[in-house]
């Protein structure tokens, strides 16, 4: 029964990952990121409920607090204050990216099949989806040329990793998860500070300007 629900959550995660890949508006990206966090949190809670792993409850609460509430708010206010609400043009056009994404999903499933046969968890069939969402987020970081979507891609990648850990081994040890959560939070703040500095220096958040820093 739980397996069905977790599979459903995994499917939603994959769809959200594709949606993020194709989404051009920054604010919508943030919203999608929040949804992704929510689905992740719910699926973790379901696993916690069905297996009785008490530390997964804490993970679920952490995910809810951090990735559904705090980070989207921080990102949202950043975008408003930096005034970068307009559409972002990806480096490669969306259909091509989507095709590459499908290729990645197939690759991820091919990769995950032998591993998920080894894992003895109820959630093992979702490992492929988790890996696919990691790779898709990575792809998103590559094809965006503005700084904010790249950061969202980074955070989404972390979501995928978290999901992979939950599905393969019922989550990492609590200490590690707490550490990662803190890292993500601090990382976001550091990114925020960098955004301001980058904009002050180049009057734009377009990372193409960073190419000038290259030493000839």
């Amino acid at each position: 029964m739980t397996e069905q629900w977790v599979n459903l959550a995994a499917t939603i995660l994959l769809i959200i990952a594709f949606a993020m890949l194709s989404q051009r508006r920054v604010l919508s990206l943030v919203r999608l990121f929040a949804w992704q966090g929510l689905v992740l949190s719910v699926s973790t809670a379901m696993v916690a409920y069905s297996t009785g792993q008490s530390h997964l409850w804490i993970s679920a609460a952490l995910t809810l607090g951090l990735k559904v509430i705090v980070l989207p708010i921080v990102l949202h206010s950043l975008i408003v204050r930096l005034n970068v609400r307009w559409d972002v043009e990806p480096l490669i056009n969306v259909p091509t990216t989507m095709l590459a994404g499908i290729g990645l999903v197939i690759f991820a499933f091919a990769l995950a099949t032998p591993i998920s046969q080894l894992a003895g968890t109820v959630t093992r069939s979702t490992l492929g989806i988790a890996l696919a969402s990691v790779l898709l987020s990575f792809l998103m970081m590559i094809v965006r040329r503005k700084a904010v979507p790249q950061v969202i891609g980074f955070l989404a990648m972390e979501n995928g990793l978290f999901f992979a850990a939950t599905s393969a081994t019922y989550g990492m040890p609590l200490v590690v998860e707490l550490g990662i959560a803190l890292d993500v939070l601090v990382g976001t703040f550091v990114f925020g500070i960098f955004f301001f500095h980058i904009r002050e220096t180049f009057d734009s958040l377009d990372i193409r300007h960073m190419e000038k820093l290259k030493e000839d």
């Binding site: 480096l91 032998p114 990575f138 792809l139 965006r144 990372i207 960073m210 190419e211 290259k214």
Partner: peptide, 25 residues
């Protein structure tokens, strides 16, 4: 190799990751 473009650097790590995943498998 050093292009100064973040996307290129990300692509390097992406390709490396994929290659490693294929290799380790």
């Amino acid at each position: 190799l050093q292009q100064g473009r973040i996307s290129t650097y990300l692509l390097y790590s992406f390709v490396t990751l994929i290659a490693l995943l294929v290799f380790v498998r």
